[in-house]
Design a protein around this nucleic acid. Structure first.
Lengths: 195, 195, 195, 195
DNA sequence: AATGAATGAGGATTCATTCAT
DNA sequence: GATGAATGAATCCTCATTCAT
């Protein structure tokens, strides 16, 4: 277990420490893609390969699958939060940003539907925290006279995110829009937040 | 070393086709439980053990995981169909039966949300067929002047089923009811169909 | 994670359930050899290969490395116990049997020297139990007027077993004999117990 | 963005060879601790971290695990040699120093019991050399009329070192003393050599 | 001269699937 | 028809070792 046989052969390049951040981002991007394609239980080795890094790099940045999933979600959540923090933020506008992310990132869909993985990996706790951050951002801009109260809002978001499935971004966006319409909720322009 | 006639058998004898049917049902029941607890990717060996049968039996009846999942769903779908076939069937009543099954069987939730598994197991096709059968049953009783048209109905069912999560039947039923309420759809008594 | 790609190709024979016991024994035998050659941390895959079984078989019979080590030791301990239970048992005779096993099975040496593995695998507890069984067997025949008291006996066994190293059985036996001689303890014929 | 002269450095500056020696010592000290806690197969990264140095530093000073183990042992051996070189050296006194090191440094125990690692890492050769140096030092002071002859001495040292296990220094020392007693060998004060 | 990120082989472990009995 | 052991590919994860900075 000590000397690893075969270790004396070759050893490919090492791009130094500048690449660390780039690699981390590459892993997250790859994870987003792979999770979208294969689900949250996709082999981590596939993600590492897609990101063009060794498996060790993946593990260095994300000690377990949960951490990686969270990192993927984190980005989406942060954008919603930033949108909520903007002066010009409106409820409908926020829903637009949220919807964009739902449609864009299939992994985000799991935010309120991580049960499949959560049951096995204990993702639950952090997913709840992330979910709560989204809810919090939305609630802050929920008009007092809105059709939905705070409690319903949570359910509504869950219902919409659950419907956001489909092979293409367009298809997913269309389904999300339809879902909001069924709920009788007006949604602003569906687009990412841009400060 | 001579075997006493009538002595207790050493291993469960082959009781013929009566047992076969019983085993099949046991496997489905076990699968429903295990899928609910661990998700649709639970080890098949766990299901076989829960059903008190060898793994071979599981495979005899269900060549692959997909077939097993379908068998689980089939029961739910059939009940909805039977409810729809009843003379006294009403749309709201049907939704009640549907909702009961959503709350009862966590696996049923997957009917419109099997993507997690579908991506890798090719469940998709059959799930669609099953889903279509449910839709068909519902559509047949959808009042012309209903708030939902046929297309929206599909989406609505998806939205509701997606929200049906939670550890207990009661919790799941409550969430389902809330979801229907948000959609402004009236639901009859939530209970299984009884011819 | 569901369908294992590549699974549809070939699938080698399955010798049925009669072989189970034989396989278990083969694994233990292989483990004894490999542990002797490579130490208690040798790859389990090596052991499986040596035993001509799949890795799954190894895991079926022994859930972890500890269980396997224990199984190897168990045999040795049992023989000592059987020797102790014999009518004709004498202290010197028992030491002979013990010494034979020490020389025969390098793994047995680890009985009182499992620290290397114990530190990492928690073997300690069971090893102690096994060790105690050996001590118990020996103590039962320790003459009241012996040079060693019960406490010293434990230490003496530890000292001797620790010295039993070397590439060949003969070399190991020679070292063990020398060790007993240094301790001034008489040892009977060095041979396995034969009822 | 201009760097203020005298501002604190961003990363540990290269303090030249003074630091190099300090680092080397730190690595050895860390290795001694970690080897004692986790065994001779502990991850080298753990040792580097404990020593507060990068892994590269460890490799600069010690090309492989073997070299590091040897360096740890070397210190112990040297002290025994120094004790032997002192004018006032006596056999019993030397055994006291040896025993102190056995009890102090769990790694030293491996000196004659490195088989676990040796089998795989090729430590054997050097360990033998180190062992021989200890033997040589002891032999030089072995009284002609001593209970042990030169050959037995080797075995005796092996027997004693093998027994030196236990969580605390005190426990280890006690066991070592008991072992010497069983062998009927008198040991001087157990303490490090101080020129 | 030091740091610590990256690589990737190797070993542990799980589980779908087959098949002798 | 049933049982459950065996197989082995796939995945997870660790860590020795290199090397850009």
């Amino acid at each position: 277990m000590t000397e690893q046989p075969g270790a004396e052969v070759r050893r490919p390049a090492n791009q130094g420490r500048k690449v660390a951040a780039r690699n981390r981002a590459a892993v997250i991007a790859a994870a987003r893609e792979v999770f979208a394609e294969q689900g949250l239980t996709a082999p981590l080795s596939v993600i590492a390969r897609r990101a063009r890094v060794g498996q060790g790099v993946l593990y260095r940045h994300f000690p377990d699958r949960t951490a990686l999933v969270e990192a993927v979600l984190e980005e989406n959540v942060r954008q919603v939060e930033q949108a909520a923090a903007a002066e010009s933020a409106t409820f409908a506008g926020l829903l637009g940003v949220l919807t964009w992310h739902l449609a864009e990132s299939a992994a985000f869909i799991g935010l309120l539907h991580v049960d499949q993985v959560a049951g096995r990996s204990g993702l639950g706790a952090h997913a709840s925290a992330l979910s709560e951050r989204v809810q919090h951002s939305l609630r802050a801009h929920l008009p007092a006279d809105h059709r939905l109260n705070a409690k319903d809002l949570e359910l509504a978001v869950a219902m919409v995110s659950a419907t956001v499935t489909g092979p293409t971004r367009e298809e997913r966006e269309r389904r999300a829009r339809d879902a909001w319409r069924l709920l009788g909720v007006e949604v602003g322009p569906v687009r990412p937040f841009e400060g």
